[in-house]
Design a protein around this nucleic acid. Structure first.
Lengths: 234, 234
DNA sequence: CCGGATCCGAATCGATACTG
DNA sequence: CAGTATCGATTCGGATCCGG
């Protein structure tokens, strides 16, 4: 174990010893969306070997980042501790930083419900949203369906598909998503260019990057204003 | 190379592919202090194998995070690109996060000039400092000597020792550090407890964690108010 | 000295199979 | 469902070596 130490007495070093191993931060990313069972994590991280997932969960527990919570009569879930939840702004900032270097996806690259959820949180412009009317979006990307409800500065995201048996009856995921969304649209990977501002909403619709399935097409503009990542590129 | 991909089209994933390898973020940490030559980085990361340092620098360049800059007649330095410099708030936040879990140092753990510099930046409370008079601290920890000049919301840190041949004549490091500091003090690893608020300034001096070598002892209180990391512990 | 490249054993990771 | 066990493929670490 001492072999994996960086040998420095420093906060950054300690942090990367806690969450710097391969896969660790992606597990944290998914757990930031909500508690997950072992199998959920495996589906959200399809390429992780199971022994590595086990090992990481164990290390994260020892580091006080993750907690294992037994569920009455129905298995157990992993969830972030309060300390682990303090990573949220860091993971969001990293997502914003990495977003700028995402090119076109490799052909085998996938989009998971949790990664898309975090991507929307990453791109959420609270200030812009606060000055816009509430809106309720249903987004389809690959086989993932998300419902993003924006109300002033608040954002709530529910995962409609893949379903994933609700882990907790109190789970908010499905709550209050009974009505219809204001707009339903499908998108391909090119949605990155819309969020990056490389495409105007009109262009995105014209090019077929975004196709409206139901509801008001003009809401795509509000979506683009609400979810945006600056490319402060030189 | 595709073997090291996480197989997801996601900003967080892209980010950890760029800077998630072992040692990468520590190289970034040191480069956030200023441009460094290969040898400087080796000294700042004493336990890094030289082949790994080479490999990481190459990867970081390919990722557009680091740039290699030849110096006229005197070698070359590595420096962060503008994109790499955008990591500063993230690295500082990670340092703050990890700081809370730093226990007592392992016996072989060291403190480097760059890591201590970043630690002070991490702990710097701009708001508190802005409402305090300017102050000029000289801090000795192990064999590192730093000069931290606080002037309102601004913090400037110079590394007085180890010296490290100035990389650029315009380097600010030694500039304007001719006068005497307002207070000079030495500290051991216990300074962590002062910054974490586990120790009052008076206790820190009493326990010998901090010993004033010159100047006004009362400035230790101002130092503690200026450099502080909350332990939002449960 | 600076800026690496090379070699090799040890540790880790990835893929798959298997189990309570 | 929630992991262990196994084993070959990679990567890391430590040391040495090399061209300016």
């Amino acid at each position: 174990m001492a072999a994996r130490s960086y040998g420095q007495y420093c906060g950054v070093t300690t942090a990367v010893e806690l969450i710097g191993e391969r896969w660790s931060l992606l597990i944290v990313r998914d757990l930031l969306v909500g508690p997950r069972r072992y199998t959920d994590l495996r589906q959200g991280l399809p390429k992780i070997p199971t022994n590595i997932l086990s090992a990481r969960l164990k290390e994260l527990q020892e580091g006080g980042v993750v907690r294992r919570v037994p569920l009455l009569h129905c298995g157990l879930v992993y969830e972030l501790t309060p300390y682990g939840r303090e990573l949220e702004p860091i993971v969001l900032a990293l997502g914003r930083w990495g977003f700028q270097r995402m090119g076109e996806p490799q052909e085998d690259a996938i989009v998971t419900a949790d990664s898309l959820t975090m991507a929307l949180r990453t791109a959420f412009q609270m200030d812009a949203a606060a000055s816009l009317p509430p809106a309720d979006y249903e987004v389809h990307v690959a086989d993932v369906v998300l419902r993003a409800q924006v109300d002033g500065p608040a954002l709530r995201i529910a995962q409609l598909h893949p379903a994933g048996r609700p882990v907790d009856p109190r789970a908010q995921d499905r709550a209050s998503v009974d009505g219809a969304a204001d707009v339903v649209f499908g998108a391909g990977p090119g949605i990155r260019r819309l969020i990056a501002g490389e495409l105007t909403p009109a262009q995105a619709v014209d090019e077929g990057v975004v196709h409206v399935l139901a509801g008001e097409e003009t809401l795509i503009e509000r979506f683009a204003a609400t979810f945006h990542i600056e490319g402060g590129r030189a």
